[in-house]
Design a protein around this nucleic acid. Structure first.
Lengths: 216, 216
DNA sequence: ATGTACACGTGACCC
DNA sequence: TGGGTCACGTGTACA
């Protein structure tokens, strides 16, 4: 009886060892009874060879098991908070950890290089975006891209100073006549958020002569 | 009996009905001749129970194997650049990845907090440092740490605006009443360097009644 | 022919 | 005592 199932990656052949074993035993015993007198020594050496091969085989299999189980042991060591020590649970937990670590590393990498490379340069079109940083309480990150002009930094500084919010961090980049500013503001309430936004929007699009009047 | 199997995701339980059939037939027939008169039903139920238990056992074991192998399959999926697909190699590679990712995540985290802690956070004592960035022409990096006060950003902005130099990038961090500002300025000549320095020094130490009112 | 890797069934052990 | 886990030896396929 043959069951055919096809594999995507690992196509292997499976057979039922039990039925096979039964068949083998049967054929073996009948065979021995038939050739007992004719080729005893040959049979014996054959049997010894078979036994030796079996021993080698089982030893190799044991080495394989030990190799695998050794890896399980090290996994048990490097995995923190491992409640269930059984193999399946170890693998499950390992997979979980790998996925988590991958995501974490990716995020950290993006955070690091993103703020230094891609996100940092000003956009060609004017933009204003406010977002809450959920990792800290009441911290809001405001990102704006606009045309650069003399006194832009002063304008932004004054706009921020006019609010009761506290500016924790500022990052401004000017290149090619465009400016990108990121402001981390703490202590803005929900209504203050809209005020901050409108204030920044005014600053972004304020004509230069107005700014000049303010700065002087 | 040959099973050609596919599939990591849809694992199903197969057992060999052929071997089972053979065994059943055999035990039943031998038994009939031996215990026909004494305890037919009892014997039969006993043998069947044993067989049933064995079957349950092997099926459970098969389920266990499948559970484990399923995890191996998902490991094969999420691990990149997996050359050797065998179990031991998978575990070895997994361990390697976990260690690497842990180290990487730790390093990135330290980098993040490191630049936010040691380099980025304001110094407790007032500092002013100018240095030329040799990687770009005429780019000067000015780093200053001083007491924070309302309008500090405006002051710095105005001071920079009063100079003909072009501010390429600004980074300001305020925490614990202290401020650290890093300014990347382009187009300052050698004499302008001293001017920039003295100007910033004035800004740093400018007394502010407003500040006093805030801090007390 | 030789070695490597896998699934299988089974005895043993532990809640 | 039954369900869950493990190690073991074995049969088989593949290179």
């Amino acid at each position: 009886m043959v069951l055919l199932r096809q594999g995507m990656q690992h196509v292997r052949n499976y057979y039922n060892s039990e039925a096979q074993m039964i068949r083998n035993n049967f054929s073996r015993s009948t065979f021995i009874s038939q050739t007992y007198k004719s080729s005893f020594l040959k049979q014996r050496s054959k049997a010894d060879n078979k036994l030796l091969a079996a021993k080698k085989h089982s030893e190799a299999e044991k080495r394989r098991r030990m190799r695998i189980n050794g890896q399980y042991d090290t996994l048990r060591d490097i995995l923190p908070n491992l409640i269930k020590k059984d193999k399946a649970s170890i693998l499950v937990e390992t997979i979980k950890q790998v996925k988590e670590l991958k995501k974490k590393a990716l995020k950290l990498e993006e955070d690091n290089h993103g703020t230094t490379k891609e996100v940092k340069f000003p956009s060609g079109v004017d933009k204003l975006n406010l977002e809450k940083c959920n990792d800290e309480k009441g911290l809001v990150k405001a990102t704006l891209s606009c045309e650069d002009r003399p006194g832009l930094m002063s304008s932004i500084a004054r706009a921020l100073g006019s609010m009761k919010a506290k500016v924790v961090k500022v990052e401004m980049v000017t290149v090619g006549g465009r400016n990108r500013s990121v402001l981390w503001v703490q202590g803005v309430e929900n209504e203050g958020l809209g005020m901050l936004k409108s204030t920044l929007k005014v600053v972004m699009h304020k004509p230069s002569f107005k700014m000049r009047r303010f700065t002087q």
